[in-house]
Design a protein around this nucleic acid. Structure first.
Length: 227
DNA sequence: TGCCAGGCCGGGT
DNA sequence: ACCCGGCATGGC
């Protein structure tokens, strides 16, 4: 009951988020890398630069020099690392998927996850964002906001790591990518507004009423219709 | 103006 | 198994 109410409350407060804010699968993948520990606004600036240079397609991106890519990526911060990560991903795609995203997304979820995690610069959150938002796979993105909010509401133990929180959500939610999509997006928005790293408690958080309610029941797809 | 953002890696204990 | 510093830019 509580997890469903929790979600319904967020949906009412903030409305549907309509994520991921990108058009193509490639753009989602690049965005997932560019937004690592960075405000989305800055990642968006980098994507804009890439678009202006015509690099938001695989063929052109492969042909871009490191310097050219770095100059586009710069506003997203960590620009050397992120450029390296993008290039390592492109190399992996060439060697393992004939350079085709279609081939990549035909891999079974667990295999794709395993392979992507082996690329330096791609960690669990980035990979899961790619699988969920570009691949429409039922994989919950248990990012920092998700972990912090669930911990503060005592649904998971404080300090629970990525895998623990993800497993918890997979256990208590139907394996539906549309639900994972909306739920994660809402958690990020709630986090930005009410649950930043330095906020000691979420006293203004509209979800405060759920604090301490950790008895959870399964939810159904009908929750998507709330709000 | 300082502090933070939709992480990840490598090295140390 | 943890803990830490480094990586970097733009906005509030």
């Amino acid at each position: 009951m509580t997890l469903r109410q929790f979600f319904a409350k967020m949906l009412v407060e903030l409305g549907p988020q309509d994520w991921w804010p990108a058009r193509t699968r490639l753009e989602i993948i690049l965005g997932a890398i560019l937004v690592q520990n960075t405000a989305w606004q800055n990642a968006a600036l980098a994507l804009k630069q890439l678009r202006q240079k015509g690099l938001l397609n695989l063929a052109r991106l492969r042909g871009a020099s490191r310097a050219e890519m770095e100059s586009c990526v710069r506003p997203a911060g960590f620009f050397r690392q992120k450029t390296r990560t993008i290039q390592k991903f492109l190399t992996w795609l060439e060697r393992n998927c004939h350079g085709s995203l279609k081939t990549m997304f035909s891999l079974k979820t667990e295999l794709a996850r395993h392979q992507l995690l082996a690329i330096k610069g791609l960690g669990p959150e980035t990979v899961d964002a790619i699988l969920l938002y570009a691949g429409h796979r039922p994989v919950f993105v248990a990012d920092n906001y998700t972990r912090r909010i669930l911990a503060r509401h005592e649904m998971v133990k404080s300090g629970a790591d990525y895998a623990e929180v993800q497993q918890f959500l997979h256990q208590h939610l139907p394996a539906d990518p549309d639900i994972y999509n909306e739920y994660h997006a809402l958690l990020v928005e709630v986090g930005k507004k009410y649950c930043k790293r330095t906020d000691p408690l979420c006293d203004k958080c509209p979800l405060q009423e759920f604090l301490g309610q950790n008895q959870l029941m399964e939810v159904s797809s009908s929750m998507m219709n709330v709000g």
